[in-house]
Design a binder for these strands. Structure first.
Lengths: 144, 144
DNA sequence: GCATTTTATTTGTAAATGCAAATAAACGAC
DNA sequence: GTCGTTTATTTGCATTTACAAATAAAATGC
C-alpha cells in the first residue's frame, strides 16, 4: 500500500469528518445536532418513515436512533406513531416545530455543499456524485 | 435543497460509514479497531509522529487519541517517548508487534479499496482522489 | 531571569455509540 | 387456533467519544 493520502477510504473519511464536524458546530446553536439533521432531512423527503428505514438512510444504528428520536420527541420536533396495520412498526412524523427547524437548517446545508464544492465544475460534481453512489453500491456486495 | 441522494455531504458520509463499519468488523478478530489501524497506518508512513499530528492526520480528537494510544500501549503495539528536545511533545513509535499487526492489516485495507473501487477505470480513481482532496481543502477555509 | 502567554498532552465527566438481550407483534406451518 | 419463527423496536450495559479544565513545558516580553 502506497502513501495514506492516495488511499481512497482515508480520503473519504477525512473529507467526511471535516464536513461533519464543521456542520455540527454550525447547527448546535439552533439546538440541533448533525444526526438530528439527518433524520429531519430524511423525513423532509418523505414523512412517516419507519425507524428501520431511517436507520439505513441515515447510517445511524437503530439503537442509537431510538435514543436520538427520544430526544427529538422531547424537543417536539418529531412524533412517533404506531402503524395501525402493523403494530411492530413505528412511523416518525415531523411536527410544525420540526418543519420550522428544518427550514432554518436547509440553507446552512446548502451553503456547506457549496463551500465543499467550491471550484468544481457542474460536470465534476456530477461525476463525484456518481462515483460516491457507485462506491456505496460496491460495498453493498460485501453484505451478501 | 433537492433529494437527499444528490446531496454530496450525505453521499460522502454514507459511503464512508459503510466502508468504516465493514472494515472495522474485518479487523476486530485481529484485536484491532478501525481507529487503531488509522494510527498504525499514519505511523507506517513515518514513525515517531507526535500526538497532535496524529490527531490531525487521523481525524481523531486528541483526547480520544490519548485513550486510544493508552490501549495500544497496553497491547504493546506502540510506545510513547518524550521528545528530549521539547518535553511537551510525545512521539509515538511502533513496536515489533505493532509492525506485525500492520503487515496483517495492509492486505485487508488494500482489498477494501479494491472492492470499493470495483469497476472504476484508473482515470476515474484519480479523478475521485483529486476531488476528495480538493473538497477537504475547501473545508479548510472555514477554519480561518 | 521572572512573569505571562502559548503549545502539547492528559484527565474529568457527560453524552453518544454499538452490540446483545429483551420485548412485542406478525407470519407460517400444521 | 396454537407453536415456533421471523421482523421491528427498545433497553441494558460497556465502550467510545468529545468538550472543557488541568497539567506541564517552552517561548516571549520586559
Amino acid at each position: 500500500m502506497g502513501p495514506l493520502d492516495a488511499y481512497v477510504p482515508y480520503l473519504l473519511n477525512r473529507a467526511g469528518a471535516r464536513i461533519a464536524t464543521a456542520f455540527g458546530e454550525e447547527v448546535r446553536p439552533l439546538g440541533a445536532s448533525l444526526q438530528m439533521w439527518r433524520v429531519l432531512a430524511a423525513l423532509r423527503e418523505r414523512d412517516g418513515r419507519r425507524m428501520g428505514d431511517l436507520s439505513v438512510m441515515t447510517s445511524i444504528e437503530v439503537s442509537t436512533l431510538t435514543r436520538l428520536v427520544d430526544q427529538m420527541e422531547k424537543k417536539r420536533l418529531v412524533e412517533r406513531r404506531r402503524d395501525p396495520d402493523d403494530a411492530r412498526v413505528v412511523a416518525l412524523h415531523v411536527t410544525t416545530a420540526g418543519k420550522r427547524l428544518t427550514r432554518r437548517i436547509v440553507p446552512i446545508a446548502e451553503r456547506y455543499e457549496q463551500v465543499a464544492l467550491k471550484g468544481f465544475a457542474p460536470v465534476e460534481v456530477q461525476v463525484l456524485r456518481a462515483a460516491l453512489r457507485r462506491l456505496y453500491a460496491n460495498m453493498d456486495e460485501l453484505y451478501d
